[in-house]
Computed example of a mutant assay.
Amino acid sequence: MDLDITALRRPSGTELSVSWHHASRLVSDEEIAVLDRWWRTALETLVAAARTRAAGHTPSDLGLLSLSQDEIDEFEDEWRTT
């Protein structure tokens, strides 16, 4: 598949501009429309999770600490209930 996706953050920092470029002989406009809808849905889901912090933290979020995901989840669960 010959497909290029260009995603740029707008200067405001709150918007993303996305361009899809493809070889029409290999990928149809309909296929690109489906990919675009899937991509936007996935991105909106990630943004919603980040806003609600429903996703929690991961080991990469904690830099200098060496905790497993299970340990992080336990700490977050404990702090949510207190």
Rank of each mutant, 00 (worst) to 15 (best):
E76Y: 02
S24P: 15
D77R: 15
A48P: 01
A33K: 13
E76A: 06
R37C: 08
G13M: 05
I5L: 15
E74G: 11
G13Y: 03
R40L: 05
L64P: 14
F75K: 10
W39R: 04
R80W: 01
R37K: 14
L8E: 15
L8N: 15
S68V: 00
W38G: 02
A7T: 12
I32C: 05
W20F: 15
L16Y: 00
D70I: 06
R53N: 08
H22T: 03
H22I: 01
V47Y: 06
W20S: 02
T14R: 15
Q69G: 11
P11F: 08
D61V: 03
I72K: 02
S66H: 12
E30L: 11
T14A: 14
D73S: 13
A48C: 03
E76Q: 11
S12R: 09
T82L: 14
S24V: 10
E30Y: 11
E78Y: 13
A48F: 06
W39Y: 09
P59D: 02
S68P: 04
V18F: 08
L3I: 08
R53V: 00
E78L: 12
T52Q: 05
S66Q: 09
D29I: 00
D61W: 00
L43R: 10
E31M: 11
T45A: 12
D70S: 12
L8R: 14
D73W: 00
E78C: 04
T41H: 13
T41L: 06
A33D: 15
T81V: 11
T81H: 14
W79D: 09
S12F: 05
R10M: 06
S12M: 05
E44G: 04
L46Y: 10
L35H: 02
I5P: 00
A33F: 09
R51K: 12
S12D: 15
V34F: 14
T6D: 15
E78I: 08
A42N: 09
T41V: 02
I5K: 01
I32L: 06
R9W: 08
L43H: 11
S68R: 11
T6V: 12
S24I: 01
R51C: 07
L35Y: 06
M1V: 10
R10A: 11
E44T: 06
L67H: 03
L26T: 07
P11M: 05
H22K: 04
R10D: 08
T45I: 00
H21C: 07
D77Y: 12
S24K: 08
R53K: 13
I72D: 01
E30H: 10
S12V: 05
L67D: 02
A54Y: 00
T81W: 07
D70G: 14
S24R: 05
A55F: 03
D70Y: 07
L3T: 03
A7W: 04
H21L: 09
V34S: 12
A48D: 09
A49H: 02
E44I: 04
L67Y: 04
S60W: 00
V18W: 05
R40V: 07
E76M: 06
S12W: 05
S24E: 05
S24T: 09
